[in-house]
C-alpha cells in the first residue's frame, strides 16, 4: 500500500535530509533523515530537551534551516502547541477564526466555519463569546485544536497537544484525528513523550536521543490506526520497552540526570 519515498510532483510529502542544527556551541540536532508521506503519521518520541521541538520548528518553517535540507510539498499546514497559545484579547470564536483570517477568508464565512468546528470539538455556544481567561484549560486546548483543524490542512504539526487534557477529551481528539488521517488523507508530524499516544496514532515512530538529538531507532506500525485496540497498544509498548536501545535512550538520560542532581 505505502509507496516508497516519492519525489513525484503530484503527491505531497515532507522530507528532512541530513538535517543538523546548533544553537551557539551546542549541537541540538545531528543528521536527521525522514520522510512523511501524505495520509501518514510520524511521531518523534524521546526524552525532553532532546531537540524535538527544534525539529518541529525547522520542519514547520518557524526556524531557518542552516545545515541540511527540509522539503515541504504540502499545500497547507497548521500547528497545535502544547500550551494553547490563544490571543487573550480575542474571544474563543475569534481565536478559532484567526487562522482563517490569516488565509483571507471573509468575515462571515470564517465565523460560520469557526463555530462549526467549535461545536464539533464539543464547545458550546456560550463559550464562543468568552475570552481565554474565562475558559478552562481543556476548553482552551479545544479552541487551539479548532483553530488548527478549521483550516482543514494537509499537514498538521502537533507539539504534545494532549499533555494537559483529561482522558475523555484526549480520546475524542485522537479519534477525530484518526478519522481525518483515514478519510481526508491528513498527514501528521507529531511530537510526544508518551509512548501510548505515539503507538495509537503513528505509522512510524522515530526515537530521538538527546545531546545531540539524533534518531536512534525507527519503528513502523503497519496495522491501521482505527483497528488498534488497547491490547495491541499495550503489546506494542511492551515490545518497544524491551528494546535495549530504547531503554538506553530513556534510562541513560535518567541516570545522567540523577548524577547531575546529586
Amino acid at each position: 500500500m505505502a509507496k516508497l519515498a516519492t519525489t513525484e510532483n503530484n503527491t505531497p510529502f515532507l522530507q528532512a535530509s541530513q538535517l543538523f542544527h546548533r544553537f551557539g556551541p551546542t549541537e541540538i540536532l545531528e543528521n536527521i533523515n525522514f520522510t512523511l508521506e501524505a495520509g501518514k503519521v510520524i511521531s518523534i518520541v524521546g526524552p525532553s530537551g532532546g531537540g524535538k521541538t527544534t525539529l518541529l520548528h525547522l520542519c514547520g518553517d518557524l526556524l531557518d534551516v542552516t545545515d541540511g535540507k527540509v522539503i515541504n510539498r504540502f499545500e497547507s499546514q497548521a500547528f497545535a502547541f502544547q500550551d494553547a497559545r490563544l490571543l487573550p484579547w480575542l474571544t474563543a470564536l475569534e481565536n478559532i477564526a484567526f487562522s482563517l483570517k490569516a488565509k483571507g477568508v471573509a468575515k462571515n464565512h470564517r465565523r460560520k466555519l469557526a463555530a462549526k468546528m467549535a461545536y464539533r470539538l464539543g464547545l458550546v455556544k456560550e463559550d464562543l463569546d468568552k475570552f481565554p481567561k474565562d475558559l478552562s484549560g481543556g476548553m482552551r486546548q479545544r479552541v487551539a485544536f479548532a483553530r488548527a483543524l478549521v483550516l482543514e490542512p494537509e499537514l498538521l504539526f502537533l507539539d504534545e497537544p494532549f499533555s494537559a487534557l483529561d482522558i475523555g477529551l484526549k480520546r475524542e481528539l485522537q479519534s477525530l484525528l484518526i478519522e481525518w488521517v483515514t478519510n481526508k488523507n491528513l498527514s501528521i508530524f507529531f511530537i510526544t513523550h508518551d509512548l501510548a499516544e505515539a503507538v495509537q496514532l503513528s505509522d512510524e515512530i522515530l526515537v530521538l536521543d538527546a545531546d545531540p538529538g539524533r534518531i536512534v531507532k525507527r519503528v513502523k506500525i503497519e496495522k491501521c490506526q482505527s483497528e488498534r485496540d488497547g491490547e495491541f497498544i499495550h503489546q506494542q509498548i511492551r515490545m518497544l520497552l524491551d528494546d535495549p536501545l530504547i531503554i538506553e535512550t530513556f534510562e541513560l538520560n535518567f541516570n545522567n540526570r540523577q548524577q547531575e542532581a546529586s
Binding site: H57, L62, F79, F98, S99, A102, R147, F157
Partner: peptide, 12 residues
Amino acid sequence: DLNDMANSFQTP
C-alpha cells in the same frame, strides 16, 4: 510564543 503561533499560520 504568540508570534510563533501567528507565523505558524503564515499570518500576513
